[in-house]
């Protein structure tokens, strides 16, 4: 019989640690695992090495971790939606490594799919090329970008069954499906948790085998 992975937020948090490399999805405030972020803050974890697209807005989503000084380094494509992040980066309190948004996706895909890197034209002739091999294929040049992998990914789904098969809603998908593939430990929060077998197999967007723990989440605020 298929087994439930549903646990309390405290049980889920007990598997995390300070200094972890953690993938956190979301586009500005959309599709952010708000319940799990609050859980990390309550559990006291710090020195986080975050991989995300951006840092939400001030005091919300990933912005909560920024505000509480829990992030030491962030790999992302954009911080412009959060003035507090910009100020802390300028002050040297958070180190940032910028990566183009599409390259971020491809590096996670490589990390989650057992691929040793990707060749992308994005960033050729720009500062993104510095220090990276440029490889020519059939007369075209590409930058070699290496895979991204994390200790932990925290994911926000609309509906999930108790073993973690899940569905995302509209543009709240964003980085959730790809991040679920690229971490050693995947914790999923879902707005609605249903019985195993209730979701139509053809509509499932992230296979439950990728998910370690399922936690009750809440809709976007």
């Amino acid at each position: 019989m298929a087994k439930s992975k549903v646990v309390s937020i405290d049980e889920a948090m007990s598997h995390l640690f300070s200094g972890m490399r953690i993938m956190i999805p979301g586009f500005v405030n959309c599709g952010v695992p708000e319940t799990l972020i609050k859980g990390i803050i309550s559990a006291g974890y710090t020195d986080l090495d975050v991989i995300s697209n951006n840092t939400s807005v001030q005091g919300r989503g990933i912005g909560r971790l920024v505000h509480e000084n829990r992030i030491k380094h962030i790999t992302c494509s954009h911080i412009g939606s959060n003035k507090e992040t910009m100020a802390k980066v300028v002050a040297g309190e958070i180190n940032v490594t910028f990566t183009p948004q599409g390259t971020l996706c491809e590096r996670m895909r490589a990390g989650g799919a057992g691929i040793g890197g990707v060749l992308t034209p994005t960033g050729l002739g720009t500062p993104m090329q510095e220090g990276k091999p440029v490889i020519e294929v059939d007369g075209k040049q590409y930058i070699l970008e290496k895979p991204l992998h994390a200790d932990v990914a925290i994911i926000h789904a609309w509906k999930a069954d108790k073993m973690g098969n899940c569905i995302y809603h509209h543009t709240a998908k964003n980085f959730n499906p790809i991040m679920a593939t690229a971490a050693d430990l995947v914790i999923l929060e879902a707005e609605e948790i249903v019985e195993i077998g209730e979701l139509e197999p053809d509509y499932i967007m992230t296979p439950g085998c990728l998910v370690d723990y399922v936690v009750q989440g809440c809709p976007a605020e």
């Binding site: 959309c30 599709g31 948004q101 543009t171 998908k173 964003n174 959730n176 790809i178 809709p219």
Partner: peptide, 28 residues
């Protein structure tokens, strides 16, 4: 307003008939 449906600035948006949604990997 549906907070799960935003444009590239994070502002709530709507979909016209025939629209589709996808993840960032597909998007790029």
């Amino acid at each position: 307003t549906d907070l799960d449906l935003v444009d590239a600035t994070g502002v709530p948006s709507t979909l016209r008939t025939g629209a589709c949604c996808f993840d960032s990997f597909t998007s790029f």
